[in-house]
Design a protein around this nucleic acid. Structure first.
Lengths: 239, 239
DNA sequence: ATCTATTGGTCTGCCCCCAGTCCATTGACT
DNA sequence: AGTCAATGGACTGGGGGCAGACCAATAGAT
């Protein structure tokens, strides 16, 4: 049976209720390194407006994250909700089990990720980046290079997200963040070796260099190589 | 000001209520040619389950489309909801106005589309397509080539969607359908010339040929050329 | 010491959406 | 002619999310 277009257009209009979605988003912000330990989240009123969710629902989500140990709230002016210094360590679900649960979902995510991120790298290299954007890229690159092993995944996510950002397409950035979250659980299941990490950093350098140099084909090529390395690693560990 | 990652991760958790989203989905099915005039939609019970929406909400959406002249329902066994033979003609909003309303949204959509569809073409060419998939592609191609001017947009959408389908990534297919819907309103605003149409058909041939031949770089290249042509046309008319 | 702006915390009434159930209609099959 | 399965149509009770108003705490500014 061939995959039908019906499946795409008649897919669920929403996955989960607003509360669950909100929790997911806040986790995204933390796990992708958009807010780092010690950072303050936007005020409840602001955040609720941006997420287009009632303050009650947002508060329930924050409460859930508080119980899970991710954030803490303080009242009063200059108060707010802050990301904890010690984040809960992700439970390492056995790789085999994850693979079974996901099934075709892994290939789905990998194909989508490849399209999005190589496209983002290419688009970013085509644009004339502002000084601020260039600086932002360089900082994310440096932070990732200097990250401890325990923090590496978060800074790596942040760097990839930064590349998507400078593509100039917000939708592309959002989609990149989403697919990365889908993969992060898998990535947590495989060990992080010093050697892979060094190799990864070299590839990051090449990607950012090509983007800053305004060389779209090189940027695409470098990103493609980087991603296929990760993809191979994942497929191997989850096979 | 540089675009912040916040904007991506703190974007609204949902745009519109379930009713509106459902209407949008059904319109998508019709306008992208997933269901053609005369076709029957899945039964309300089935469809509601697939869309993860209550039957009441789905019925309200169908009712709205009935009033708008898109579909008609018949009761009894072998009844159902059918797509009208005469679809309401899209109102041609003046291009300038659309461009103003969208603003950066146009560039956003074009960049995302490029990433998704060139990625899809490449991924499709990498896969070993089943006989059914190959036939499906060829049929969509033939239908588009033979389409009347008034139906062209719908068959063209369907063909592009078919290419995304055979990429093997459902998420990629969904995303492609969504961004196409965003662009279709713009595309309706620009005239369709016989000459562009012939050129478009030739490019479609090249894309499908490269996919069937299993030549990823050629498929990407062909798709890239095709899309950049459309993009140029759009930018010119909306400038 | 007091004031005040900003933030998290709480409560109320309302509406949309939902799951489940039953009814009404239709047309192919026997 | 009768049967029957599947479809659209209609109703009900309940729950989640909503907007808005108000309370409580906090720390800088005066």
């Amino acid at each position: 049976m061939v995959a039908q277009a019906d499946d795409a257009v008649f897919r669920p209009v929403r996955t989960g209720n607003p509360f669950e979605e909100t929790v997911e988003r806040l986790l995204q912000a933390i796990k992708l390194g958009v807010v780092v330990p010690g950072d303050r989240l936007p005020s409840e009123r602001d955040l609720a407006a941006r997420l287009n969710v009632s303050r009650v629902t947002l508060r329930e989500a924050i409460h859930a994250l508080t119980e899970a140990g991710y954030v803490e709230s303080r009242r009063g002016r200059y108060g707010g909700t802050f990301v904890n210094a010690q984040l809960p360590k992700p439970r390492r679900t056995p790789a085999k089990r994850l693979a079974r649960e996901l099934g075709d979902g892994l290939e789905d995510a990998l194909v989508l990720r490849s399209a999005l991120e190589t496209g983002a790298a290419e688009a970013a290299a085509e644009r004339a980046l502002s000084e601020a954007e260039q600086e932002h890229l360089r900082r994310c690159l440096a932070e990732t290079s200097g990250a401890k092993l325990s923090d590496y995944r978060r800074f790596d996510s942040r760097l990839h997200l930064a590349i998507a950002e400078v593509s100039g397409s917000p939708s592309l950035t959002s989609a990149t963040a989403d697919v990365r979250m889908r993969l992060n659980e898998l990535l947590d299941a495989i060990p992080l070796l010093e050697r892979n990490l060094r190799h990864s950093n070299e590839q990051h350098e090449a990607i950012v260099a090509a983007i800053l140099a305004g060389d779209p084909p090189a940027a695409r090529q470098a990103m493609q190589e980087h991603l296929s390395g990760t993809a191979t690693l994942l497929r191997a560990f989850l096979a």
